[in-house]
Design a protein around this nucleic acid. Sequence first.
DNA 1: GCGTAGAGATTGTTCAACAATCCATCAAGA
DNA 2: TCTTGATGGATTGTTGAACAATCTCTACGC
Lengths: 233, 233
Amino acid sequence: MPVPAQGSWLTDMAAARHDLDRTSTAARIAELLREKITDGRLAPGERVREEELGDALKVSRNTVREAFRLLAQERLLVHEFNRGVFVRRVTADGLADLYRVRRILECEGVRCAPDAPREALARVEAAVLDGERAAADGEWADVGTADIRFHQAIAALVGSPRVDEMTRLLLAEMRLVFHEMGSPREFHEPYLARNRRLHDLIARGDLTAAERELRSYLDDAEAQLTKAYREKE
Amino acid sequence: MPVPAQGSWLTDMAAARHDLDRTSTAARIAELLREKITDGRLAPGERVREEELGDALKVSRNTVREAFRLLAQERLLVHEFNRGVFVRRVTADGLADLYRVRRILECEGVRCAPDAPREALARVEAAVLDGERAAADGEWADVGTADIRFHQAIAALVGSPRVDEMTRLLLAEMRLVFHEMGSPREFHEPYLARNRRLHDLIARGDLTAAERELRSYLDDAEAQLTKAYREKE
DNA sequence: GCGTAGAGATTGTTCAACAATCCATCAAGA
DNA sequence: TCTTGATGGATTGTTGAACAATCTCTACGC
């Protein structure tokens, strides 16, 4: 049989392989739950009963349990042995750790910006624009989504699938934090301008200033959230 | 009821909570498999049949499947829909990505060294000593284990549970790479002295030199492994 | 107020069955 | 000979029911 040339259409097919393989019922249930959780329709701390969910989706308990295991490993659900599964509640300590890792990954993204492909930087700007547009329309939930996509894009400048995945989980957990405090507008509005500035600094190639801006950005956001956390207790 | 003082013994109890709660059968099976994989007794690419394993352990297929899901999320197993689960094979691309993230996390560890507690640095030195001792005894498998513990300890200087966990998964995957090439001695021996030097630089507080040393360390290791990978193909 | 005991609910685990899919093999046809 | 298509066995995917183990709440007695 003929050997396909490097970079032939066959290579593309091989790369697109994962799009083709069907997904298990458990994986699809997990996806549904993920949406409900990131939407905030399943609130942090809320319990998810396996029989209840199984009946609602017309699937067996075993399948539901598989889905639970997936999301528990993703840190969206917490599985307490013999007690059940709950939507994760992020503690103040957890929040600090979240920001610690965000600082590491996102700052690395900024430092990698010069080596990043043009499309990667374009995605950063796209997220900025989406946020500004959503703010103009008063769609504050969408502003939050755009903000998360912005930071995802920053970390993606590293160009590492692993970093992308870690950031995805990280930011999904951040959504839990936002939902726990329920403050879409007051929280996201002031950061729109900073997203814009951060992007411009990166695009201009002033990485030192960009990293400084990002760090102060994250410090401020963390301080604000932590303060709100403490007040809630 | 009296409020416990910050850092009291109650805090310790709460932290040790997870040691007490019984673990599910699936979690224990996962632990068994994890050992077999990191020991190399389950080789990369090898298939693990669910019925076979269930019979061997006298547990039901469903329970085995749960264990598979856990390890698949840990990236030790690969789950191919309708085809089965296999011990992960790390590709050359995967190897490069592993080192990309290791550089990020471990270099951050070095930079955080001044703020790290004394015990954290002690663990770095302990790993160095363990490696040297194992080498003197000719126990090259133990040298590999000590090397991994060394790098785990470096990343742990960050002081973040999340970084610890990410590094744990990362290094478990590195073991797969080592097993795939089956070269314990030739590979680990030259790095013993470098581990020692790296620790000394950190202990001395010369972080600039330490980070440079670590980067060159990782570059060399990656190059060596990548070369061996290419030759195997 | 405190400890105990029991009832009900929920999770943990097993088992058997069937459906869906994969894989190797083999037969037919160009 | 090579390709194509069909067949059957093996393995995974999913279900539903059953029972055991554990938790949680309530009622009771002290």
